[in-house]
Design a protein around this nucleic acid. Sequence first.
DNA 1: TACAGATAAATTGTCAACAAAATTGATGTT
DNA 2: AACATCAATTTTGTTGACAATTTATCTGTA
Lengths: 251, 251
Amino acid sequence: MQTKTVKRRSVRASSPAPLQDERPANDGEGGASDLEIYERIITSIMEHRLPPGTKLGEDKLANIFGASRARVRQVLARLALERVVVLHPNRGAFVAEPTVEDAREVFEVRRPLEALVVRRIIAKKDPAIIARLRAHVEAEEAARAARDRRAIIRLSGEYHILLAELSGNALTARLMHELASLTCLIIFLYDAPSVPACRDQEHSEITQALADRDEATAIRLMTEHLEHVEACLDLSRGRPEELDLEAALAS
Amino acid sequence: MQTKTVKRRSVRASSPAPLQDERPANDGEGGASDLEIYERIITSIMEHRLPPGTKLGEDKLANIFGASRARVRQVLARLALERVVVLHPNRGAFVAEPTVEDAREVFEVRRPLEALVVRRIIAKKDPAIIARLRAHVEAEEAARAARDRRAIIRLSGEYHILLAELSGNALTARLMHELASLTCLIIFLYDAPSVPACRDQEHSEITQALADRDEATAIRLMTEHLEHVEACLDLSRGRPEELDLEAALAS
DNA sequence: TACAGATAAATTGTCAACAAAATTGATGTT
DNA sequence: AACATCAATTTTGTTGACAATTTATCTGTA
């Protein structure tokens, strides 16, 4: 067993910009606030504790969080808008199962966006940014040392979210939050079960290039990084589910 | 007066991908469906019939559309997620008033995304695409001939949405839908009242470059186009509202 | 007259009950 | 025994009412 969970929030890179002005935060007691419900669900999805295809029943979630069904419903609607869950009318909400096409589109959009982020980070010339990135990379290494695969994948995604946030473009940060969440789902769906051996210290190298303010190298490393991740996926055939089903039928 | 409205839907470039599987469409009678409410509101916003800062009261909208408040609330939440409206807790929903910073960010993200779209369109080699683009450009010219400023701006935005949709990347299309809506708001907020004289036949030129499959020229034209639009804006000072207020206080 | 406080109106936030639909399980027929 | 039909349960969708907060109005005092 190797399920020792690496501590979260070492470097906080979540909550995609406040949807509305801050509020007193209903942190009364048992009942969880909207944001808490949202974050707990999306974190569970990013860590694959809620695998793609899982049904998210409203009543069940409401009981779990000690909240009303209406509130859960709201959160599910938001997650659906971010394409991290899918709503089937009169059937309920399910954790999304991105298709191969979806996966390709995500990477295609991420490439130019990440380049934009890199350029902005370098332009900022802020040593504090590099420090925060280094801290995050350390957290990633800790997760890798602990062999906590779930944390590894989540933190990998959060590195890019953090990068976008530190770049100072709030819009890009929000988009990256969404794209990184989807990427987590995609990796869990299509990653060859072999290993996350690929893309190991690439974040560290990218951080170094940013520290050196070497734009060309940073963008090249980032592009290659994304291509490596994409290349590690089994995008040749359809998603597992359908394949298994058809295979079972064919025999 | 010059308010003769150019007919919509000549080239349909709306509704950013179905959020959930299609449903029978509750087109019973007076009551409007979710999508109808959404589209009517966002079209009104894109045409500036609902200017930035307008309060969108739930009860009022519910009466107007003959729908329940809950449904209106849902639609408003969605529009808030797309940043086209802003929610103030216990105060209600308002048409967003993007800041200068927001505007810059939108253009910064649009540049690489539009380039991506252009590359994909050219790679598709589909004459039908060019035909649809030409048809849309014609609709734009009709609106310009009719001096229908609202339609001009909305159709300008929809050109880019259409482009993204035709590029075959659904994710990009969804993002562009959101960015184009925001751009409409921004133009109405910051455009020098002078004219939309700038960026007149640029869409036509871009379309031609796409038809010629001249990638370099198409991307250059597109980039310049976006820069022209951005340059036409009064982004030097804060938005009108705040400026007036401070100016009044200073005297 | 101008301002502070309090009351009244309007609007948003929340919830719980009801209605509709789909899934599951049971029954009867071939 | 297999299939189709039908009933029962579970789950989603919708509505309406109630509570909480904000905004506007009114009153009294300096």
